[in-house]
Each structure stands twice: as C-alpha cells, then as structure tokens.
Write a protein that binds this DNA or RNA. Structure first.
Length: 428
RNA sequence: GGAGAGAUGUCUGAGUGGUUGAAGGAGCACGCCUGGAAAGCGUGUGUACUCGUAAGGGUACCGAGGGUUCGAAUCCCUCUCUCUCCGCCA
C-alpha cells in the first residue's frame, strides 16, 4: 500500500510515479482516481464525527459528576440522547467512507523505484549480465527427455487433476526432492537464512498483507465454503509471519528461506506453455524472504539476487539477469530482477526466479514495523525472490544435461542428494 | 465434533457501568546516590488517525464485530483464537 499521508501531501509526484506503469493506472475511474475523491470526503466525515464524540464525552463526564453529587442531570441526558443518535448515524457513514478509501488504496500498485527502466512490456527489459555457456546442439524438449526416461508423466497428471498437472516417477521424483533439499541447505547453511516450514493455505488478511488480494483473487484457488486460499508463493506466509508486529531495529535483517508448494490458477495464461512442466497449476519452490530497514532495501535486493544466482551457478546452469521495465514490474514491487535460465530446446532464456524489492509497500499492508532510531515505528521494507522454482530447475537440468544417448548428466553439487548418482539414465 | 475455561499495555496482573490510556508489579530509559556497580530513591515509558507553523488539542483502540445506555474494559449477542477434558484421526 502506498503511504496515505504522502498520497495527500505529495500527490503530484506520486501520481507521476504511478503513471509510469501506464496512463490507465491513474485514470479517473481507476483505484487512484477513486482514492483521490474519497480521501477528502472521508476526512471531512471523520472530523465531524470526532467533534460530536468529543461533545458526547464531555457531557457524559459532567453527568457522571452531577450524579455522584446527587444533582439533577436530566436536562443533559435528554440533550445527549440526540447527540448520541447523530453519532451513531455519522459513525456508520464515516466508517463506510473510510473502508471505501482504504479499499481503493489497496488496489493502487507500488511506486516504481527511479532506477527501473521505462518500457511497456517484457521486450523493454534490460539484460544486466550473463553467466555460463549456452548450448544449442539439437536438445529435445524436456517433456521428450523426461518421458523417454520414464520420469515425467503428464498423462497421469491430467487424469488425476487435469491439464497443467504432472506426475514425477522414480528419479524424477527423487530429483525434485533433491533440489528442494539442496537449495534449502545452501541458503540455510551458507547464505544465513533461517529455514521455516509454513502452511500452504492462508486466510484473506494474510493474502492482503503481501498484495495478492483484493485485486488478484482470480489468480488464486479458494477453498469452498471457507475464507481460505492456497498460497501462490511462500512469500505470502513467510512475510506475514510478522504481521502486526513491531520489530527491534537490532533484529534486522530478518532472513528466511522456505520450501512450499505453490498453486496458481494461471487464469490469464490460456494457451501459453501448454506442454511440459514450465507452467503448472501446482509447483514447488524454495523462496527467500528478507525484512530490512527501508534504506537497505535495494542493497538487500542485490544480496538476495546473488543468493538465487548462486544456486544456478552451483547447478552449472547458464542464465542471465534481467531488470524488469516499468510495464513488466509486478503490482507490489518497486523493482524486480528476473533470473532467466537457458533452455536449449527452445533456444531462449526463461524465467526461473524473480527477485523483487517491495520497499515499505508490504510492510504497510501487513502492518509490519520496525522501531527507528527516533523510537518511532515505521513500516519495514521487504525483499523476496525464488531461490529457485524447482520444477523449472528440473526442466533446465534435463535439457542442459542431456546427452546424445538420452541420459542426463547431473551437476556435481547435486550428486550427494541423488544417492551419489552422476546421471539419470534409462536403466535405473 | 461435544463440554468447560479464558483473551486487558513490552511482560505479569487488577479492574464495583461514570474525570480509566487503564491500579499494582516487572522490564526499559533518564536522573540521584556510588570510586564503580548492585540495591535504593525519583521521573518517564503504547499505537493509529486527525487539527495545528509550533506549543499543544481532539478521536479511536482492553481478541474482532454488533447491541443496550446520556455514558461500556465492565452488561447482552455473534464470531475468531488459546487452554483443559472427551470423541475422532496421520
């Protein structure tokens, strides 16, 4: 959520910043436009209400005093009956206006960081660096490799749940589990993240805290008859571990890594990546989350991005780092780096990790604060990123490790997690 | 799922419907005392919104939401969560 006070006092500057995401974002009928109209009215109503409440409190005290000394207070009591009625009326109106205003604010995207490059879509993203040697020597698609090895079964996934679900068998399942362990160990032992294990279901407040709700309900699976949702990323439960808390400045940075399954309806992705494991309704991911002091957010983003890159390097997967442009940066993020892994069968780099700084946007929504040097609490800054998406990592390993005989070479770092195996082949 | 108990500030723990932001204690901060410390003494110590250049006002908040009342932490209703016992279960 953007800062309420700044919304009023620095309106023009904020509007310009928000408009970088597209002019429709600040249109009159947008959340931005509604919030502006509602802000004034909301405060007028509140002022009126508070004046009435003040009067009520004063006279009620007076009545108490008079009664305790045995004086007659019937005149005051009659007067207050009327004031009370008006308070009740106004209270309803003022609360509704306030709720409407907050509702609009919750649908306004984060302000972009000044360093985010301008652009309408992913074509304008800026490549920052590359690592590794991409191969392009006729590697088949991962689904062909995996099905030939008997470790990927998309038909079974479709039978059990529908399209965009898959089943892993044998070394496929083992590889998924190995990646999860490997990544968690790396982040917990070497990069200083405390591992947490959290629920894969979250309530509405939690989903609102990190920005998935109210605006993106269509992307979420909701449990029937309950106000609960399947999480689309571990960012949701892990960040909200601290909702409504005031943290000690000395306890920052808070760093957590977590494995969770992730569930996404992929409502707007019909027809995209329909084959294979790239885009699934359920996938596994190890997530990195940091809570930091606001002035450290961008440094923390670099730090966290490096931790995600370390996974790709350890797995010997060629990748590049891309800075997302203004039109491609997500709703809650102020700045995002995508890590894209090389997929030789497609001859392209595909997103395998997204690392974002949210500034104080999520801190405000989830009411996570830190006590500053002046002793005053302020919203904490959050940074998170995939470290990494496991399904896509498995895909990248199959393709990049593929050999002419159909077997797949495993990187050295992963072999201990695979019972010492150096490759996956048909006879296993 | 059934029965019961509970939810108050950083913590602990009081609170009879009337000047309660909320006793007492602990903690924390500052000061006094001390060669230094402990103890002791004194003072202070919530969050949010809002008005104001400021000093300083105002309002809300005792799990959440409603209700009764001139006035609710206190009475009533609903919900959530926690604990205990029973049932069920990996």
């Amino acid at each position: 959520m953007i800062d309420r006070k700044a919304f009023r006092t620095e309106f023009d500057a904020m509007q310009a910043a928000v408009a970088r995401r597209g002019s429709d974002v600040v249109a009159a009928d947008s959340a931005w436009g509604r919030a502006r109209a509602l802000d004034v009215r909301q405060r007028e109503l509140k002022g009126e209400l508070e004046a009435l409440q003040s009067e009520r409190n004063h006279v009620s005290k007076l009545i108490g005093q008079k009664k305790s000394t045995g004086e007659d207070a019937s005149k005051e009591m009659a007067l207050m009956g009327d004031v009370s009625r008006r308070v009740k009326e106004l209270d309803g109106v003022a609360k509704a206006a306030e709720a409407e205003f907050t509702g609009a604010l919750l649908e306004i995207p984060n302000l972009l960081h000044a360093s985010v490059p301008d652009g309408d879509n992913e074509d304008a993203n800026v490549e920052l660096r590359k690592w590794g040697e991409p191969r392009s020597d006729g590697v088949p698609a991962h689904w062909e490799i995996g099905e030939a090895l008997g470790i990927l079964d998309f038909e079974a996934g479709a039978t059990l749940a529908g399209s965009r679900f898959s089943v892993l068998r044998g070394m496929g399942a083992r590889l998924e589990r190995a990646l999860m362990q490997f990544m968690l160990d790396l982040h917990a032992d070497r990069n200083g993240y405390e591992e947490v294990w959290v629920p894969s279901i979250a309530n509405r407040k939690t989903m609102t805290g990190t920005g998935q709700l109210p605006k993106f309900a269509d992307d979420l699976y909701k449990l029937e008859g309950e106000d609960l949702f399947l999480i689309p990323t571990a960012e949701v439960p892990v960040t909200n571990l601290y909702q409504d808390q005031i943290l000690d400045a000395g306890s920052l940075p808070v760093k957590h890594c977590a494995y969770t399954p992730c569930f996404r309806r992929e409502a707007g992705s019909a027809g995209r990546d329909v084959r294979g494991m790239i885009r699934q309704h359920q996938f596994d991911k190890v997530e990195l989350v940091q809570l930091v002091s606001p002035e450290c957010a961008l440094d923390a983003l670099d730090d966290l991005t490096a931790h995600a890159e370390a996974v790709l390097q350890a797995l010997e997967l060629p990748y590049r780092v891309v800075a997302l442009c203004s039109g491609d940066t997500g709703f809650s993020a102020e700045k995002t780096f995508d890590l894209e892994v090389w997929l030789p069968s497609q001859g392209v780099y595909r997103e395998i990790s997204s690392c974002s700084s949210f500034g104080q946007f999520q801190g405000r929504r989830a009411n996570i604060r830190v006590r500053g040097e002046d002793g005053k609490p302020m919203p904490v800054a959050t940074v998170n990123g995939s470290g990494l998406a496991i399904g896509r990592t498995l895909v990248a390993l199959l393709e990049n490790g593929w050999q002419q005989d159909g077997s797949v070479k495993m990187p050295v770092a992963l072999q201990p997690y695979l019972g010492g195996r150096a490759m996956i082949a048909n006879d296993q």
